[in-house]
């Protein structure tokens, strides 16, 4: 897997209104391979969103470097290249759609890039097809459901032909159905088009679908590993007041009580079949 994103010793500090200096990120280092699906979890204020904004040069490092596809984000000439290669989807579905119809909104990115009209048309149609929103092309966005709006936002990013999508809590304001829609869309992009995905979320069942999970705490990466590895550290996660999938927590409790069950478990079928082995007979 070739390296698409590289973050080295990234520190981000800013001044508050009262003049205090706050470090939102402290010496964070991270690599994301092309085609990888990375989930970032952590509390509000843990630095997740700040990190996300560095990946598309919306913020620039105080110290340290960020490379996107080999491009240093702090070099001004690289700015638009970087933003084209890393698309961002934000939390509030309403506040990222610009235009009065779905297709005009999806066209917004390529229009900014100066793509010829015929090519924009092609990209818009393709992007809407990928997120399964083609039939809504000429509708105004405000009547769509939250999940549909987020899919339009994803299409708007896809139309810029990025190599990576960074989604900053894209499901936080959605209902369970909307969450499913958005997660499935992005999973499909990752699986079928090898799109690199950085998915920031509070919902652990979403993080469990990733190739790799990073837990952020106070501007640092506190825990990192495969979902199984990360979630099996139940006590640490609880200490950070983060959720653990119920199955993992149950396996952890059984393990602690002396049952031969590994806490590195994520899905219920797995746990059931293990328990059936141990309990039957």
């Amino acid at each position: 897997m070739s390296r698409l994103l590289e973050v080295r010793d990234l520190t981000h500090s800013y001044l508050t209104r009262t003049g205090e200096e706050v470090e939102a990120l402290r010496k964070v280092s991270l690599e994301v391979g092309a085609g990888e699906f990375v989930a970032i979890v952590g509390h509000n204020g843990s630095g997740k969103s700040t990190l996300a904004k560095h990946l598309n040069a919306l913020l620039l490092p105080s110290t340290g470097v960020v490379f996107v596809d080999g491009l240093d984000t702090s070099v001004p000439e690289n700015l638009w290249e970087v933003r084209q290669r890393v698309g961002m989807v934000f939390q509030n579905p309403d506040n990222q759609l610009v235009a009065t119809t779905v297709e005009e909104d999806v066209a917004f990115g390529p229009e900014n890039l100066g793509v010829p009209s015929a090519e924009i048309r092609k990209r818009v149609d393709e992007a809407l097809a990928v997120v399964e929103m083609s039939e809504f092309a000429t509708r105004p966005p405000h009547n769509l459901s939250g999940g549909q709006k987020q899919r339009v936002a994803i299409a708007g990013v896809l139309a810029m032909r990025p190599k990576c999508i960074v989604l900053d809590e894209p499901t936080a304001m959605l209902d369970p159905k909307g969450r499913q829609e958005v997660l499935r869309t992005v999973q499909r992009l990752n699986a079928e088009e090898s799109m690199t995905v950085v998915w920031i979320t509070h919902f652990m069942n979403e993080a469990a679908q990733a190739d790799r999970v990073l837990v952020m705490q106070e501007g640092r990466i506190a825990i990192e590993g495969s979902p199984r590895q990360v979630f099996s550290r139940v006590e640490e996660l609880k200490e950070l007041h983060l959720d653990v999938p119920q199955v993992t927590e149950l396996a952890f409790l059984l393990n602690k009580a002396g049952l031969p069950v590994s806490p590195e478990l994520l899905c219920e079928e797995e746990l059931v079949s293990i328990l059936v082995d141990k309990l039957a007979g």
Binding site: Q246, V247, L275, V276, L279, A280
Partner: peptide, 15 residues
């Protein structure tokens, strides 16, 4: 909830 599905899964397997 996931745990209900686990418990039901066990019952279905005769536990």
């Amino acid at each position: 909830p996931q745990i209900i599905r686990v418990m039901k899964g066990l019952v279905n397997q005769g536990i």
